[in-house]
Amino acid sequence: MFPRPIQTMSPAFQRGYKIALPIMLILWLLPLLGVALTSLRPSGDLAAGNYFGMPSRIAFENYVDVFRNSPIAQYLLNSFRITIPTVIGAVGLSCLTGYALAVYKFRLSLVVFFMFVAGNFVPFQILMVPVRDLTVNMGLYNTVTGLALFHIAFQTGFCTLFMRNFIKALPRELIEAARVEGVNEWQIFWHIVLPLVRPAIAALSVLVFTFIWNDYFWAMVLTTGAETQPITAGLNSLNGQWVAAWHLVSAGSILAAMPPVLMFFLMQRHFIAGLTLGAVK
């Protein structure tokens, strides 16, 4: 193990480490803690210059205010309406593509695979003008569907990379044996491979959920109004309205951050497996 286990060090060193841990953590999360605290501070405190001291009381009304005086509930709902279909669509499509690229040997298989991988790295701006134009022409500009369709297509690149590598690592004998038995290809996929890739499906779902929930660029390009914009773009326009009303901005930020954070804590293991692209075990 590297570095040397702390247990082999002197007691003084061990104590030092245990004190350093929480101090480092607080320093690391200081900006976040500041915002969380501000979101619970009554606006009177900020007006009186009490930015860092104890809040005079805990002001949950900031959160109530945010819900009452802004379309934030609608923004949050839109985010779910965009994110959930994207997760289902992209993970579903990539099960198919990943299976095709992992199980069959055909001439263009590596070329197709690396096309997915490379497409996944391109800058969004090179896609922006044509994708916006396409969405407008399909009559899907400023709709949740238009945004979700793009996300599904783009995320399929990343998901294919992950899924293909995952399926490739499964024992081939399972598939060969089924073929010998005369099971057809679709049934092999459905009854043999799909149940085995459940961990990959879980990892990708959590990850794609977070990516799409946090997307800001495409929301700005493909949607405009409060009826369709997700929370990231919504927060940007609210930030413009709430100039210097930091207690509201903070409360809105905390709300926007909540779903992916919960997702991460509930599904941590899967999340990390996905982030390392399955390459680092």
């Binding site: 500041g34 946090n214 927060l235 901005v249 951050a257 954070v261």
Partner: peptide, 11 residues
């Protein structure tokens, strides 16, 4: 885990 929009506002 948190969105860059939120990170931007925090900073």
């Amino acid at each position: 885990v948190i969105s860059q929009v939120v990170v931007g506002l925090i900073f």
